[in-house]
Deep mutational scan, measured.
Amino acid sequence: MDLSALRVEEVQNVINAMQKILECPICLELIKEPVSTKCDHIFCKFCMLKLLNQKKGPSQCPLCKNDITKRSLQESTRFSQLVEELLKIICAFQLDTGLEYANSYNFAKKENNSPEHLKDEVSIIQSMGYRNRAKRLLQSEPENPSLQETSLSVQLSNLGTVRTLRTKQRIQPQKTSVYIELGSDSSEDTVNKATYCSVGDQELLQITPQGTRDEISLDSAKKAACEFSETDVTNTEHHQPSNNDLNTTEKRAAERHPEKYQGSSVSNLHVEPCGTNTHASSLQHENSSLLLTKDRMNVEKAEFCNKSKQPGLARSQHNRWAGSKETCNDRRTPSTEKKVDLNADPLCERKEWNKQKLPCSENPRDTEDVPWITLNSSIQKVNEWFSRSDELLGSDDSHDGESESNAKVADVLDVLNEVDEYSGSSEKIDLLASDPHEALICKSERVHSKSVESNIEDKIFGKTYRKKASLPNLSHVTENLIIGAFVTEPQIIQERPLTNKLKRKRRPTSGL
């Protein structure tokens, strides 16, 4: 017993010596996670971090007073192994002897410093981030199933929210409404489509400006004509009531908005009720001829604005009016007729031209339509002016008669200019590109209106002035400009410049 007691005391002394060697000089306990400095002193990692955080910048070693920084600290694995072995020896000594260790306080702390507990403390002390800490805590505590279930439920809930957000973003663009038309193969669909197009076009005519009305009406008319041609002859009974509906809707729209509806009346003529396609083609032919005449008058307007600064050229074209007008009339009417003589009366030419125009518009179905009313009214106005011209010709002399006839021709041009508003800008460009020769010939008609105004002003003063002067240069210039014009009389060319000069002198006297 005595020997055993001596041996136990010796073992205890050895353990105490080893414990003092492996103590931390700051906390005076076994080193936890030993860290060595540049001066080869060993301290606990937790104690050194606490010391360095007390001051900004480098701190001093507690043993040798040298500078220490966080970067200079290094882990010493050898001392950590020695500490672990010492703890194992102490545990074995207690089991063999059955005696508690003399320094129970220190031993209890040593026992608490088992490797499992050290790992837990290291995970908390090290600044490795929240995710690494959570992982280490889960690994160190596998015995708690409640914690695992809560963490898994949190992760699953987070994943569910992310997935639901993604699915919502994908589903939202798919919620856009999609309209699908289910059509049938019955023959009544074509008639319904035609009526739908006509009503939609009328609404567009009321909303859209004048520049786009003609294009819309032309497209709708083409669509309706194609649909009529596709149907068989057996379905004509269905077409006639639908066309009557079209007429009623167009008349109502014309009564409500007459000014807006006139812009599309000329282009919509071939959508009118037709028994066969031949009647629609004839109407299209007549409309094309009318559009040609209207576009020519538009060309004359532009030329008149350009040549208004040259009064000499405008005056020299006075007698070329009849010849150029004959050529335009021959090209406007498709019928083959002989040219009228140069010395014939211009009023007779106008009456013949009106007689040619009237039969074209005397179809029984055309008179029933609303768009032809505008053309009939313009023709009636022309006839009224010609009836007035006959009365004026009986009273005035030959020279005054010529000037009045020219004035009436200008009035006719004004009437025809009203129809110019109905034609589109695209048709003007096509006419100029296809028929430049006709445009040059028809330019002379509009330029002549300037000389007509001068004659009217001469009649106000009650006299006409003449001068025997020749202007050969002007006649040559005008002959080169206009290709299809005829030779003019030299006496009238000489008379016109004198009248304008005298007018300039006598205007201030009349004002006084």
Rank of each mutant, 00 (worst) to 15 (best):
L30E: 03
V162Q: 10
C39R: 00
L165M: 06
D189Y: 04
D67C: 02
V122L: 02
R133E: 08
L99D: 02
G129Y: 12
M48V: 04
I89S: 05
E181H: 14
K175R: 07
L30W: 00
N144R: 12
L82V: 10
F79D: 15
R71G: 15
G129P: 12
N112I: 09
F43K: 00
D189F: 08
N144M: 04
L82G: 01
E100W: 06
V14M: 01
I42A: 02
K70R: 03
T190L: 14
P34A: 11
L137Y: 04
Y101G: 04
A108D: 09
V162P: 07
A5P: 02
S146D: 01
E188N: 11
R163M: 02
R7M: 04
S127G: 08
R163N: 11
N103I: 09
E121M: 12
Q172W: 04
Q74E: 08
E111R: 08
N53D: 11
D67R: 04
C47A: 00
E111N: 12
K110L: 14
N66Q: 02
E29M: 11
T150Q: 12
I171K: 04
L52D: 02
K65E: 03
Q94G: 07
Q172F: 01
F43E: 00
K38S: 11
K168Y: 12
R78T: 06
D120Q: 10
N113P: 09
T167M: 15
I26F: 07
E33Q: 00
K32P: 04
I89Q: 11
D67A: 05
N106G: 09
T150R: 11
C27D: 00
A302T: 00
L3I: 05
A108T: 13
Y179T: 12
L147D: 04
F93T: 03
K65W: 15
T176D: 10
S151D: 07
T150S: 06
A5F: 15
Q155V: 06
I124S: 06
T161A: 07
I26R: 02
I31P: 15
S157Q: 06
L147C: 04
E149V: 09
P115G: 10
E111D: 13
C39A: 00
K50A: 11
N16L: 12
L28W: 04
R163H: 08
I15S: 00
G129E: 13
L165A: 13
D67S: 14
L95S: 07
H117R: 13
K20N: 15
D189E: 03
T97P: 00
E100V: 11
L156K: 04
M18Y: 07
A17Y: 02
V162D: 03
E29W: 09
E141F: 02
D185L: 08
S127Q: 01
Q60L: 12
G129L: 05
T150I: 08
Q126M: 04
L159C: 06
G129I: 13
L82C: 14
R131H: 02
A134H: 09
I90H: 14
A225T: 15
V122K: 03
R133M: 07
L99G: 04
V154C: 02
K168R: 06
V191L: 11
S146A: 11
L138D: 06
Q174P: 14
K65T: 15
C91A: 15
L147R: 06
N158W: 11
P173D: 07
I125D: 11
S220K: 10
K38G: 13
L138V: 12
V162T: 03
V11G: 01
C44A: 02
L28I: 14
Y179L: 11
L152D: 05
E141I: 15
E10Q: 03
Q139Y: 04
S4A: 02
T77E: 11
L22M: 04
S114P: 12
S153L: 06
S184D: 13
D185V: 08
L3M: 15
V162L: 05
E85G: 13
L152A: 05
C27M: 01
K168G: 08
I31C: 15
K135T: 11
S72A: 13
C44K: 01
Q54M: 06
G160H: 10
N112L: 02
C39Q: 00
I124D: 07
Q169N: 02
V178I: 06
D120A: 06
E188F: 07
Q155I: 12
L22G: 01
K45M: 14
Y101M: 01
P58Q: 13
V154K: 11
L159R: 06
F46G: 12
V11K: 01
V154D: 11
R163L: 10
R136T: 03
I26A: 08
